[in-house]
Amino acid sequence: MTTRHDELIALRLGAAPASPRLRRWLATAAGRRELAAHREALGAVDALWARVPRPIAYGSLATPIGRVLVAAGAAGIVRISFRRSEADFAAELRRRFGAVAVRDPARIAGAVRALRAYFAGERRAFDVPVDLSALTPFQRRVLLATATVPAGQVVSYGEIARRIGQPLGSRAVGQALGHNPIPIVIPCHRVIGGGGRIGGYTGGLDVKRTLLRLEGARVAVG
């Protein structure tokens, strides 16, 4: 093909501005046709290749509540889980985020360090980034409000509902916390039922009790 085509490709690939000669050609019917054809072809390939997102990295660490699995994307931690196999965890990541999941301890090293320090009692707050972008705005509000409850304290579902400006929404708050994708780091275990009852915990009530004891929370956790 001609040099004009090469120039057009350079233009489409963002490598060069259009020369006056190319611009004149693009104003003709033939030029417009060619431009449209190239745009179509590259657009089609973009649509194919854009479907491969950056993989989510995962790994695990041993803790007093058993092996804890951690997954992180480019923006931060996306999922923490426990009491299940790594294969099951990786399959969930693929389903939930539509992404490839790769066992890559190097990319979650920061989160693992923070969790180790927390379980060793050396750290009471997490400063690792979390990525809540896959959640609904309501879930995000609930989880962000929960993240402000410091270690050693507990609040009720109703209190979280009040804090997010939906005082009648304690049942919805309970549901959102039941689906907290990042337990421990987002401390849904610090949210308990009315009247000091421990409430529920997706990861198992014994885990909730262990975490609260570890933090020295003054609540009837026995």
Binding site: V52, R54, V100, V102, D104, A109
Partner: peptide, 26 residues
């Protein structure tokens, strides 16, 4: 280790695009 940590994601994505399936790419 640093190199792997920094580039593993993009290399895997490259291989998936190039080979067209995840299994071969992994």
């Amino acid at each position: 280790a640093e190199l792997v940590g920094r580039h593993r994601g993009e290399i895997l994505a490259y291989l998936m695009r190039l080979l067209g399936n995840e299994h071969d790419a992994q």
